[in-house]
Simulated assay, not measured.
Amino acid sequence: MLAAGCVLWRPAPSGRGIEIALVYRPKYDDWSHPKGKLKRGESAEECAVREVLEETGQSCALGRRLPTAHYVANGRAKEVTYWSAEALGGTFEPGKEVTRLAWLPPDQARARLTQPRDRELLDALVG
């Protein structure tokens, strides 16, 4: 299954550093980066931007490619292409898939992420 997502960031309100957006998905009881399955005819880039908007309410500008994640979910191989993305603005609305959005400094985001592969993506962004 092909999917795409972003490590979404914005300048910290303090003016020092950045904050990372994490989404909470009650179905999986996890904190992760926004991501989702490609729709028919959709490019990975289009999917990543759409999923960020759907899950966080934020429009975004894609940055550099980050490592692609390969794993098995519910017995199916999954490949997720990721980008860094700067948040450009918007309003979060809780939904069925994502009920919470958290903006955290990188160290706090790293501690909250559920999956080690998501921490590796964050590390690739903030180095």
Score class of each variant (00 low, 15 high):
72 V>N: 09
58 Q>S: 07
66 L>V: 10
92 F>W: 08
63 G>K: 12
62 L>C: 11
94 P>E: 09
72 V>S: 11
94 P>D: 09
94 P>A: 08
70 H>C: 09
94 P>I: 09
79 E>V: 15
99 T>F: 03
77 A>P: 13
78 K>I: 12
96 K>R: 13
98 V>H: 03
73 A>G: 00
101 L>R: 06
59 S>V: 07
70 H>M: 04
74 N>S: 14
65 R>A: 14
107 D>N: 07
72 V>M: 10
66 L>M: 10
86 E>G: 08
67 P>C: 14
75 G>S: 08
59 S>L: 07
84 S>Y: 03
67 P>R: 14
61 A>N: 08
67 P>G: 13
104 L>A: 01
82 Y>G: 12
92 F>E: 05
101 L>Q: 09
94 P>V: 06
74 N>E: 15
103 W>H: 10
100 R>F: 03
83 W>Q: 04
57 G>H: 08
66 L>Q: 08
97 E>G: 01
100 R>Q: 14
101 L>T: 06
63 G>M: 13
100 R>I: 03
93 E>Y: 01
82 Y>M: 12
84 S>A: 15
106 P>E: 05
90 G>T: 08
92 F>Q: 06
105 P>A: 11
73 A>C: 00
87 A>P: 00
84 S>Q: 07
69 A>I: 15
84 S>K: 04
72 V>P: 08
81 T>V: 15
85 A>Q: 04
73 A>R: 14
61 A>M: 12
77 A>V: 02
70 H>R: 15
92 F>N: 05
85 A>H: 00
69 A>S: 15
57 G>C: 07
106 P>D: 07
82 Y>L: 09
97 E>K: 05
70 H>Y: 15
86 E>C: 07
91 T>Y: 01
79 E>L: 13
86 E>V: 06
80 V>A: 14
64 R>N: 11
78 K>W: 08
72 V>F: 11
76 R>T: 12
95 G>I: 02
87 A>M: 02
62 L>R: 09
69 A>L: 13
104 L>Q: 04
57 G>Y: 07
92 F>A: 06
99 T>S: 14
